[in-house]
Design a protein around this nucleic acid. Structure first.
Lengths: 266, 266
DNA sequence: CCAGGTCCATACCTCCAGGGTATGACAGAC
DNA sequence: GTCTGTCATACCCTGGAGGTATGGACCTGG
């Protein structure tokens, strides 16, 4: 009568791996158990979710439909648990260009049983995901509204101007803010369709203009047809680790410690 | 490790009844079982959800918080099940002023085990809730976008003009559309804050103007300081029962039959 | 002050769902 | 053919969710 979130999670695992064996391994259960659970799930829903063959497994249309529904539901359930202080997974948010892998790897190695996930954020939701519990901790770019957040500054990095390779500024060692006057600037306050970094860069490549991005972001999304030059006289972008200040879990503290440790080594 | 939706549903039941005994009765389980389940749930979450005393039960702050999170999650889970064709509950949507009780009562009497719920809709979401599975079937006011819907017309009713009791049109037997020219009309295309019927009527009562509503809506929301007069020369409002045409469940068919039967008797 | 009623909690039982292991059936690769 | 990778079947064991019977705490009326 009630939906079983465990079975739903198992289903998602199989749908993502398209293999009962590998999914079972990822879930840390035996393959026959997973087989039986999925069969039981299909029986409950009275819908076939997978086409099995001896070589591989594929989703049925109903399965594809369910997969789309399943992920947000599981995310919402996970966020609920996080809000009441139960850690079923530890989730790290990050803005485009920021590297979270080293810290995540250290955390997983210290807690082998813990599921650690990452969630890429945008300017719009980098703080929201912290408050609503979708992430435990987030790498954010300042400034952010400080209300209810604990913020631990990590480092600063210069901002660069991203322009087409054919642009008049393309060869320069560096530019001044004044050099950009008269250029159409693609900003994150633009309407939808220009919001993601990819979209901004696409617009710059196609229609000219200039995008001002933190260095790491420009490097991460570098394209052959675009180049970036440092802007000298603009405030550097500050990167920080942030979490909801009302949640003082040991895992958050430990992750913050790991991050500072890594930042110190660089 | 996974959230247990059954326990969450039990929790909501206790939170709503503020009594283990009555909640258990509503859930059709024995009271000690419910007690134990809630205790286990609290242990899993490591949070106390209720303050128990021999006279009554009350929510803790954590419980209040969880209750707010629990309802949308359960609704989303229920919608997911409905989309894959599993009926855990049968939910009927209805626009303000429409009476669903008789049909619902017949349905529950014929299916004693079935949970039947109702959801009040607005102009904005009366169709959306059908498509996304929040309701199985909805009483809607035409016109609606017909794509993907099966629509069964029920009846027509005149529209009335709702005006302050002191208005120049207040005493009339009926008015013509032309009589309303020059009046500020409060419409459902207005910005937020004027969307719900209550808000429209509040606006009419405070600032004058006129709201044009179907008769049953005006009657349902009647207030001392407002009166309504029929408009003669305006197209009547048609009320219909609608459901997603790709879902041909026996329950929907039966409900439609019940509704036609009731409509025939009136 | 005790009797009864109204709560929720505890104790104890049963049963089934979910976990495990061992093994089978089937298909493609060599 | 045999080998290998895939999913399914058979069997067992444990824990959790359901039940009933009963206890303990607290109010309330006589």
């Amino acid at each position: 009568m009630d939906l079983d979130l465990r079975k739903l999670r198992y289903f998602v695992a199989v749908a993502e791996h398209l293999s009962f064996g590998r999914a079972a391994e990822a879930l840390h259960i035996a393959q026959p158990v997973l087989s039986r659970q999925i069969r039981a799930f299909e029986a409950e829903l009275k819908v076939q979710l997978f086409d099995r063959s001896s070589k591989g497994t594929s989703l049925t249309p109903a399965g594809t439909q369910l997969l789309a529904d399943a992920r947000p539901l599981l995310a919402q359930a996970s966020a609920l648990l996080r809000r009441v202080g139960v850690a079923d997974t530890f989730t790290v948010g990050f803005m485009p260009g920021l590297i979270v892998t080293p810290a995540v790897r250290v955390l997983t190695s210290r807690h082998p049983g813990l599921r650690v996930e990452v969630l890429r954020t945008t300017w719009e939701d980098q703080v929201e995901v912290i408050h609503d519990g979708r992430v435990d901790v987030g790498y954010v770019r300042l400034p952010v509204p400080a209300a209810g957040l604990s913020i631990m500054p990590l480092f600063s990095e210069p901002r660069v101007a991203v322009v087409p390779a054919t642009h008049r500024l393309a060869g320069k060692e560096s530019v001044l803010d004044a050099d950009l006057s008269g250029e159409r600037r693609v900003q994150h306050t633009d309407p939808p369709g220009f919001r993601s970094v990819e979209e901004k860069l696409e617009h710059v490549a196609m229609h000219g203009g200039v995008a001002v991005l933190p260095l790491s972001t420009a490097v991460f999304y570098s394209r052959d047809d675009l180049v970036h030059v440092p802007i000298e006289d603009i405030a550097p972008n500050e990167v920080a680790l942030a979490w909801a200040s009302h949640r003082h879990t040991p895992l958050i503290a430990e992750f913050a410690e790991i991050v500072t440790e890594i930042a110190r080594q660089v």
